[in-house]
């Protein structure tokens, strides 16, 4: 039995230390997904915690048909998409009730880029807004391929499509984002 299998056995038997190792390994990746998937930064911490709670409860049912990382990314992406759908309704309702005074929302900070100027912040806000408008497949492909350290092959495995399809989706996402962002170029 190799190390990976032993680690999975420990995880599935409820070993807290093994779960802590898993959290420390995957938290940065899940955070990177959340940063791009949500318009509001305060949603991100909740999102990461909820993903790991889901993983913790679902681990005993993990059937090892795919790799652990693929499964974790799928759980994270599905949860992000579900939250986005819920937030859409919530935002629509709040807008209807006039409870949101302004469209300005907190911009998720990129790790290591806390000291950015107002112009960059504005562009990043626009990018996050534009990402929300992408079709689901393009959004996932773009968000995943932007994360440093994730290969096209891994993204393809998570999405269950070929690497060429991932590349095509990413290109289309970039075209759509360019269209959206260049509309706002005067505000630069």
């Amino acid at each position: 039995m190799d190390e990976n299998e032993k680690f999975l056995d420990k995880l599935q038997s409820g070993d807290q230390q093994a779960f802590r190792i898993l959290v420390e390994k995957y938290q940065p990746m899940i955070q990177a997904i959340g940063i791009q998937m949500f318009e509001r930064s305060e949603d991100n911490e909740d999102f990461i915690q909820e993903v790991f709670i889901k993983i913790y409860h679902a681990l005993p049912n993990f059937r090892r048909k795919s790799s652990l990382s693929t499964w974790i990314y799928r759980v994270a992406l599905n949860h992000a998409l579900n939250l986005n759908r819920k937030n859409k309704w919530k935002k629509w309702l709040m807008n209807g009730l006039n409870l949101i005074g302004s469209n300005e929302q907190a911009v998720p900070q990129m790790p290591g880029q806390i000291e950015e100027n107002a112009e960059q912040r504005e562009m990043r806000r626009l990018l996050n807004k534009a990402i929300q408008r992408l079709p689901e497949n393009q959004r996932i492909a773009f968000v995943m391929t932007r994360i440093d350290g994730l290969s096209y092959a891994e993204v393809a495995e998570v999405m269950g499509i070929s690497e060429a399809a991932v590349d095509s989706l990413t290109q289309r996402a970039r075209q759509n984002l360019r269209k959206h962002l260049s509309t706002y170029y005067k505000s630069l």
Binding site: E24, Q27, Q31, P111, R124, L127, R146, L177, R178
Partner: peptide
């Protein structure tokens, strides 16, 4: 913005 890579950082 579009080509920027995101560096995952641990908390």
């Amino acid at each position: 913005l579009i080509e920027d890579k995101i560096q995952p950082e641990s908390d």
